[in-house]
Design a protein around this nucleic acid. Structure first.
Length: 317
DNA sequence: GCGAGGGTTCCATTGCTCCC
DNA sequence: GGGAGCAATGGAACCCTCGC
């Protein structure tokens, strides 16, 4: 996710928004890593854990942070890594976060998890014609967070856990649903279907932030002085400012274009983006990256590679 | 300094669109 | 329909870098 952070001018009007969003995503990522660590201590091989599932259903998608599947039940975990004091306001059905003397409002995560439960249930019925008990929890992975709930919001409180309580909660659910409802074979079929239907989300970041593609800095960035003026000199990239060399400096720039501007790139578009005149040099660079390509001759188009080849991804099933 | 490997340059070819 | 123009690729020759 770091690439978007680097491609806008320091004083760009959207920079603050993007940095804030990046912080949220990082917090979420670290929270899920923390969750993984706790789940790894369960040592229960009847449980199958899925991360960041995104499933199509009736023309839309629904997303589940973590899904734990067993022959006895399914458990949805909505993972939050929010620092500060969290207050649940049942009157206005919202979550208030107090942090650094600032108040911030969030949508009620219980509604989100409850909706996921409903959709997962429908998905199971549609694909396998079966119904299993589905539980859900909101798991807060930030140890320093204080959760406050008034007496009337006790039902909400029961659905929110600190990470340390998660394994205990899972053991309680296992005891609650002691009877196996689906066979090992059915469980395997469901797991395979989940993996098959999982669709990665590639947001169009420029559309989301309403940034024209002309605002993206062109050129190849020097990894030493961070300038965008590296020149191609006999198989390597040379920075005219600090004289640093980097054979692979173009890779990040091409990926930036594929992930920020368009999922495809032509030889000409790549020349414009890298500020190179030679179509042959660009052809060699694009081919050396083993990017998926379609068309031939003048209509050769290079495509965005699978994200997992370049980023650490948690969606390993 | 030499040689191997790999990158660049140049040119021919291909395939498509546009215009007459 | 045919020629001109354009954009991209492939291949050959040349050139540069790097390791020994």
């Amino acid at each position: 996710m770091n690439f978007i952070y680097t491609k806008f001018y320091q004083n760009h009007r959207k920079r603050q928004d993007i940095e804030k969003n990046l912080m949220w995503r990082k917090a979420g990522f670290y929270g899920e890593q923390n969750l993984d660590y706790h789940l790894s201590h369960l040592h229960d091989y009847s449980l199958t854990v899925f991360h960041n599932l995104r499933l199509p259903f009736r023309g839309h998608y629904f997303q589940i942070d973590t899904l734990i599947l067993s022959p006895f039940f399914a458990l949805i975990l909505e993972v939050k890594n929010i620092a500060g004091i969290l207050r649940f306001d049942p009157n206005y059905d919202q979550l208030i976060r107090e942090y650094s003397q600032k108040m911030e409002r969030f949508p009620n995560p219980l509604h989100q998890a409850s909706r996921q439960k409903h959709l997962l249930n429908q998905w199971l019925q549609k694909n396998f014609n079966l119904s299993i008990p589905i539980e859900f929890y909101i798991v807060n992975t930030n140890q320093a967070t204080i959760i406050e709930a008034s007496p009337e919001s006790k039902p909400i409180f029961n659905k929110i856990l600190h990470l340390e309580s998660l394994t205990e909660a899972i053991v309680l659910i296992q005891k609650k649903y002691g009877r196996s409802l689906i066979t090992e074979k059915q469980l395997r079929s469901i797991s395979e279907k989940l993996v098959k239907e999982h669709t990665k989300y590639f947001p169009n970041l420029l559309n989301i932030y309403k940034i024209p593609s002309s605002d993206i800095i062109r050129g190849v960035r020097c990894t030493s002085c961070l300038g965008f003026s590296m020149n191609r000199v006999y198989g390597t990239w040379l920075c005219p400012k600090c004289e640093a060399k980097d054979k692979m400096a173009h890779t990040q720039a091409i990926l930036d274009s594929l992930f920020l501007i368009s999922p495809t790139i032509t030889n000409k578009e790549c020349r414009d983006f890298l500020k190179i005149n030679s179509p042959t040099v660009v052809k060699n660079l694009l081919q050396s990256m083993n990017l998926p390509a379609s068309g031939s001759g003048k209509y050769t188009v290079y495509h965005r590679p699978p994200l997992e080849l370049f980023l650490t991804d948690r969606s390993n099933f």
